[in-house]
Design a protein around this nucleic acid. Structure first.
Lengths: 144, 144
DNA sequence: CCCCAGGAGTTGACGTGTCAACTCTAGCGT
DNA sequence: ACGCTAGAGTTGACACGTCAACTCCTGGGG
């Protein structure tokens, strides 16, 4: 197998740097406009109806404990509520509060606008096609 | 400004998912093969000779406090050493230990091989060109 | 000479993520 | 019916990043 040349490292560094700058900018926008983190945005998008914690973790492809910790913090801020599940009375489900739904609505617009402004509007079609193809391929062999 | 359509969201989600899977895989490789994190790898690569903490922070484009915290942890594990700087005797510089140099050497090979295997070897030239162009552009307008 | 303003570095509080250990319940075998 | 195990969910310890406050020089005015 060939070694990494300095051009390879430069390519990789620039790519990762661009990625990091972009994600940082989007995160700041989400925090500024809606007061939530990117992870919380993911929960708000995924949690359409009442769900079990495990379903949510599977849907997001996150560790259950990460979801549990995050839900605790979001519950304290009134974005989600734990719900009783079945006859046992154990709080094992979770759903959005009204506040959570409002925030989700607002965040969808704001975050979408930021993605469009910072990324999509500046992405020529052939670059979009290349990135799309690459993404599909990576998801295919690292996720499948 | 146009809204985000569902195709836009799908494109974005897949892209971010691929990015996340890839970074996770590379981080695990670095941890498994060399026992260091990606951030520590960055320090090991950048810290060629003795440097001041601020220089290091500037070179990496990180917050000084992040560097200070990370250096403390790396110092405890024997990868770097704080050095006395000037007549004041204040420990204000930092350099690699022998152990740090050995780890840096090993990490360069291992991480480079992983990047090549997981990314570069699978990236057709026109996709590489498109991604390279996009990266340059993003760094240009988010960093400049 | 003294003071003090500013830069460099550190530290602490807190949010967040991972891993491992723990609790609770349900379901099953005997 | 009893106990045991498997799964779901939670919790705690720790690693890491950010922000703000802090310490410690250092270099001019006065």
């Amino acid at each position: 197998m060939a070694e990494m040349g300095s051009a390879d490292w430069a390519f990789w560094d620039t790519w990762m740097r661009a990625q990091r700058l972009l994600v940082r900018e989007l995160d700041r926008g989400l925090q500024r406009d809606c007061g939530i983190s990117k992870a919380e945005f993911g929960v708000l998008m995924t949690l359409s109806g009442p769900m079990r914690v495990g379903e949510l973790a599977d849907a997001l492809d996150w560790e259950k404990s990460r979801v549990a910790h995050l839900l605790t913090r979001m519950e304290n801020r009134g974005l989600v509520a734990r719900t009783e599940d079945g006859a046992s009375g154990r709080r094992t489900g979770v759903e959005l509060t009204d506040e959570g739904r409002r925030t989700a609505e607002r965040a969808t617009r704001a975050h979408g606008a930021n993605i469009r402004r910072l990324v999509l509007d500046r992405l020529p079609p052939e670059q979009a096609a290349a990135i799309g193809a690459w993404s599909e391929q990576v998801v295919g062999y690292l996720d499948g």
